[in-house]
Amino acid sequence: MSKGKFEESIEQLEEIIEQIESGEIGLEDSITQYEKGTKLIEKCRAILDRAQARIAELTVDGNGELKASGDAQND
């Protein structure tokens, strides 16, 4: 199973912070990485702020294919 976007973003953030903290990259590169990091944080926040509260129904059609359908708001 592949990792989700959120987890990948968090891992990338960890790497970026470690790179900057260790001082193994120069200041210009750090700034580039920092900008990349802020974009990842925005991405993570966007995932977290998602609030569809969706309940989809899983059904199997005549061809044996799994379908997610009938998305409904459920509060």
Partner: peptide, 10 residues
């Protein structure tokens, strides 16, 4: 977390 989608298989 409302962002987590649930897919119900009846």
């Amino acid at each position: 977390w409302a962002g987590c989608e649930l897919l119900h298989f009846d």
